[in-house]
Design a protein around this nucleic acid. Structure first.
Lengths: 112, 112
DNA sequence: TCTACATTTGAACAGGTATTCATATGTTGG
DNA sequence: CCAACATATGAATACCTGTTCAAATGTAGA
């Protein structure tokens, strides 16, 4: 019961739609989504993200820049290292809802 | 076993992540997102979607095929026309959560 | 300062994808 | 069956983007 069925059917602003699409597009890449998921817990440094996911630091950094610019993640420097974490919990909610969606069994006939 | 279970959140499977990314990628295109939003209400026929959004029927049809294959939308034929509507309410929840996210004011300082 | 470490950045390449146009398929009514 | 309409499909194109590599920037310690 996180998102109440407040009809969001008419979002309205075209600008809002573009913003929404931007966020969704960022989450639409598996590598980037993995990075997001990795950052949902405690702040984690770039090197650890890269090692954990088996990616180069360069690639991780490229993605982190986009995610930070889109305000999905935030960064915090501690000495030589920089820690990334989720900016808020909304992304977690979004992902959670989507997990429910794909977990939905196909109880309707496929009409074609 | 997969590469490394992150277990940061309740999502584990790599396959799940790819499925999630697929859905998010579909929602990551403004045109497609507009089509989805248009279909969140009552079932609407292709021609009306196209007219409502100022797009060609061909383009709308291309997008509808992807959205139907991804089980975001469902189709229902009535005579000559085919009506599309959301397959369930989860997508609406996802969008709703994301709207909340972009509506969040920036009350934290940006680290550079 | 010099060195080693951590992260970022830019360019370049490869693969993906949104759009358009032309054509095909399918449906209803005469 | 034929004509008119509604939607789907395939190919071609132009654009976008994820990845890699090399180099740069920044940081802490000796």
């Amino acid at each position: 019961m996180k998102a109440k069925p407040s009809s969001v059917v008419s979002i309205g602003s075209e600008d809002t739609i573009v913003q929404l699409a931007d966020l969704f597009r960022l989450m639409g890449d598996p590598t980037r989504l993995r990075i997001i998921l990795t950052c949902l817990g405690n702040p984690i440094k770039v090197g650890d993200i890269a090692e954990h996911l088996g990616l180069s630091s360069s690639l991780v950094s490229h993605h982190l820049r986009l995610l930070k610019a889109a305000r999905v993640l935030r960064s915090e420097r501690r000495g030589k290292q920089i820690f990334y974490s989720a900016l808020d919990d909304h992304i977690r909610c979004v992902i959670d809802d989507m997990v429910v969606h794909i977990g939905e069994p196909l109880d309707i006939e496929e009409g074609d």
